[in-house]
């Protein structure tokens, strides 16, 4: 009787039933996850969290706007180049300078390293921070990648440029003033054997011993084809520094003697 009833149930009703069941679970999970979050957020913290969320949304909008404007300016500049060779030359120089500074998204061979907090519990009397990925850990891997010949590096979508600092803030990090949480993915473009070069270096071996073996910091890697590194979406405006007359204006060739 039951079997006949089941057979009579159209398959779409079964699909819908399963989907509704999943929906119910999700709604329940969503409601359940709201609870503890509000309870953790003390009255003192909650307006601060709101402010942070608001500021982060603003930051994202501003960065998006900067990228759009840079693209539009670049297009406008190239449209205006006309026939004049001198303008074409300046535009080429500008494009090269943008590439050098990290204002152009790149792709190529390389490696992505991923760092995550330890799964080991801190032994009594030990500092819990030692079991978390720190800004110092990330900088160490970044330094090893540069030393191994990387061309361009980003951390969770933030391009590392001449002005980039990586600093701790609580258990997370701040990069180009973007607030990043784990897993930390360090994407590096470089020679095809970039991973092999890094893993053969003494500095990286020391890092693994000190952080991975001792505290259980999780280090993994993968090699997507290609590795993508985004453009820097921050400010390139200098307030205190201005160009100094250089004896030879040739790009990056002369060890500039200071006048």
């Amino acid at each position: 009787m039951l079997a006949r009833h089941l057979r009579a149930t159209p398959s779409w009703q079964v699909t819908l039933g399963v989907a509704l069941l999943a929906l119910g679970f999700l709604i329940a999970a969503q409601l359940a996850s709201e609870g503890p979050r509000i309870r953790y957020t003390t009255q003192e913290r909650s307006p601060l969290v709101e402010t942070v969320n608001g500021l982060q949304a603003q930051q994202q909008a501003l960065k998006d706007r900067i990228l759009v404007l840079r693209t539009q300016i670049q297009q406008a500049e190239q449209r205006g180049q006309g026939s004049a060779a001198v303008v074409r030359q300046i535009n080429d120089d500008l494009q090269r300078a943008r590439m050098a500074g990290g204002l152009v998204p790149l792709q190529g061979p390389g490696v992505v390293f991923q760092l995550e907090d330890s799964l080991k519990p801190a032994s009594p009397g030990q500092n819990e921070d030692d079991y978390r990925v720190s800004a110092r850990d990330i900088r160490t891997v970044v330094e090893e990648l540069w030393l191994a010949g990387a061309d361009a590096i980003s951390l969770n979508g933030e391009r590392l440029t001449v002005s980039t600092a990586i600093l701790d803030i609580g258990p997370s990090v701040l990069v180009n003033s973007a607030f990043l949480g784990q897993p930390y993915q360090i994407s590096a473009i470089g020679p095809r054997d970039l991973y092999e070069r890094v893993s053969a270096s003494q500095g990286f071996a020391d890092f693994l011993r000190a952080r991975s073996e001792t505290y259980g910091i999780q280090v993994s890697f993968f090699k997507p084809e290609p590795v993508d590194v985004p453009a820097f979406a921050g400010t390139v405006t200098l307030r205190f520094a201005r160009p100094a007359a250089s004896p030879a204006a040739s790009p990056a060739a002369s060890p500039a003697a200071a006048p």
């Binding site: 300078a97 500074g101 520094a241 100094a244 250089s246 500039a256």
Partner: peptide
């Protein structure tokens, strides 16, 4: 061009 080069470290700067 001058702005980007100074920022990127491609030109000498003072201040």
């Amino acid at each position: 061009l001058a702005r980007v080069r100074a920022w990127a470290g491609l030109d000498p700067v003072m201040g």
